[in-house]
Simulated assay, not measured.
Amino acid sequence: MKTKLPRALIGCACLCIGMLPATRFAAASGADASKKIADQFVAGKQAGHMESYEATEVLAADLNGDGQDEVVVLWTMYGPTYSNNGVAVLAKQRARYAAAGETHDPLGLVEGMTVTDGLIQLTTKWPGPNDPRCCPSVSKTLRYRWTPGKLTPVK
């Protein structure tokens, strides 16, 4: 026996599904809003039951001089015996933010992030020749420039 759904119910379901794009995050202003946008972004990164993601640092900055702030997210993925860092830029597209560039470079142990003159700078530690795995001791500064769609290392 076939059951017909009322057209209004079908229309409502289609409208609701259309309002939930997978890679866009609600727009808002201020530090709290940037953190919320970043948290929504990292929540979408959940890969498995053994890993979790956290937006460890979030900055709002106009990276390309267009008068509109982008949200820069330093995120950390925690596994059972490992962790990994990444940086992503979320840019406003109409009334929402969307992922607009992310680095997949090894970043080492990231201790901090700043944005100055459109340049994203990461203060990191890397393992030295006699360092145990837990405790890198070699300081490095990594720099990235964002152009819509990608993050490029800057020497």
Rank of each mutant, 00 (worst) to 15 (best):
G44W: 00
V138P: 05
G11I: 11
G11H: 11
V89N: 07
P148G: 13
T152W: 04
A47N: 08
F41I: 00
N84G: 11
T76F: 05
I37Q: 15
D66Y: 03
L119S: 05
A27S: 12
T147D: 12
A13C: 07
D131L: 03
D131R: 04
G112K: 13
V71S: 00
K35N: 10
G67P: 10
P129F: 12
V154Y: 13
A61D: 04
Q93L: 09
N85E: 11
S34P: 00
K2A: 15
G65M: 04
M113Q: 11
V42H: 05
A8K: 14
T23I: 06
D117W: 06
A91W: 04
E70P: 02
A61V: 04
P132M: 02
V42N: 06
A28W: 02
Q121L: 09
A33Y: 04
L107E: 12
V115S: 07
K45D: 00
V42K: 08
G128M: 06
V71Y: 04
Q121V: 15
N130E: 13
S29K: 12
C12N: 04
L9I: 15
G86F: 01
L151S: 01
Y82I: 07
V42W: 02
A61N: 05
R7N: 10
A31H: 04
P153R: 15
A26I: 03
N85G: 08
G30Y: 01
G48I: 11
A43N: 04
T116V: 14
E57V: 06
V58C: 02
V58M: 02
A8H: 11
T23K: 09
S137Q: 03
P148F: 09
S83W: 14
P129L: 10
T23A: 07
Y144A: 01
L107D: 03
A38K: 08
Q93P: 00
L119V: 13
A98G: 10
F41V: 00
C135V: 01
